[in-house]
C-alpha cells in the first residue's frame, strides 16, 4: 500500500448543482462523519489535490473550468462524480444550457448516485476513489 490511501486530498468543485450534494459533502467534514480520520483534506487547490470531487452537472459556462481544474491536478488523480446531476445531468439533463454529467468533459472513475447523495455514500465513493488512485499510482510508478 502506498501513501495515497492514507492521505487522499480532495478538491471539491460545484458545477450547476442545487447545492444539496454540496451540503452533504461538507457534512462529511463535520464531527458526525469527520473524514479527516482517514487523512482526507479538503484542499481547494487542484495542484495539491488527488481526488476531484464534482457535484452538479456541467453547463456551457463551466466546461472550461472543469477541464482546467482536472488538467492542473498532477498525476495520479481520480474523479468522483457525486450525485445524480454529476453522474448524468439528473433532473436538469434536458435544460437548455446543461451538457450532461461530468463524464461528458473529463473521465470519471467513481459514480456516487443519490439526490442528494448521502454522506455515507460519498465517503464510500471516496474510498473507492482511493482504490482507483492506488491502482493508477501502481500503474504509473
Amino acid at each position: 500500500m502506498s501513501f495515497f490511501s492514507r492521505s487522499p486530498w480532495i478538491l471539491h468543485y460545484d458545477g450547476s448543482s442545487c447545492n444539496g450534494c454540496d451540503i452533504e459533502v461538507l457534512a462529511c467534514l463535520t464531527p458526525l462523519y469527520d473524514v479527516e480520520r482517514f487523512g482526507v483534506v479538503n484542499t481547494g487547490n487542484p495542484k495539491h489535490a488527488d481526488i476531484l470531487l464534482v457535484t452538479g452537472s456541467v453547463n456551457e459556462r463551466n466546461i472550461e473550468i472543469v477541464r482546467n481544474l482536472y488538467r492542473q491536478m498532477p498525476d495520479p488523480k481520480v474523479v468522483v462524480a457525486v450525485g445524480a446531476c454529476a453522474c448524468s445531468g439528473g433532473i436538469f439533463a434536458r435544460a437548455y444550457n446543461v451538457q450532461g454529467g461530468i463524464d461528458k468533459v473529463i473521465p470519471v472513475d467513481v459514480y456516487v448516485p443519490g439526490c442528494a447523495a448521502r454522506p455515507e455514500s460519498i465517503i464510500d465513493g471516496v474510498v473507492q476513489g482511493i482504490a482507483a488512485l492506488e491502482l493508477k499510482h501502481r500503474m504509473t510508478a
Binding site: P46, E64, N68, Q72
Partner: peptide, 17 residues
C-alpha cells in the same frame, strides 16, 4: 501559462478569462 487562477484559463502574456 499554467498557474492556478480559480479554474480560469490563464495563457501566455498573462491574459485571463
Amino acid at each position: 501559462s499554467d498557474f492556478y487562477a480559480s479554474g480560469r484559463s490563464a495563457n501566455v502574456g498573462h491574459v485571463m478569462g
